[in-house]
Amino acid sequence: MFEHSDPKAAGVVITCDFDGKTVTQDTQQCVHCGAHWVVVRGSGRPHVWCYKCVGNTCSNPACLRQCYPEEKRMDDIAKHGRLIWPD
């Protein structure tokens, strides 16, 4: 299913189908790790709305389980040289 109508889209994939017709698909961005994923409605992949970060997470179990915002990750790498996962 090709989606290009998501108001929360963070990016777009532009490719073509087997007939050579241009296809665009929206991507959303994880508020925890910053990854993008192609929006496929009904895919069954879990996504969680984080009320602290006010946004969706990707399907990575670590992002689903804990709130560790992207900018906090960047700060931790700058200060400690590695990620400091919350308990």
Binding site: A10, G11, V13, I14, G34, H36
Partner: peptide
């Protein structure tokens, strides 16, 4: 294949 981020949603 081409991917483009909307402004402010880039990979950092």
């Amino acid at each position: 294949f081409r991917w483009v981020a909307y402004p402010g949603r880039e990979y950092h």
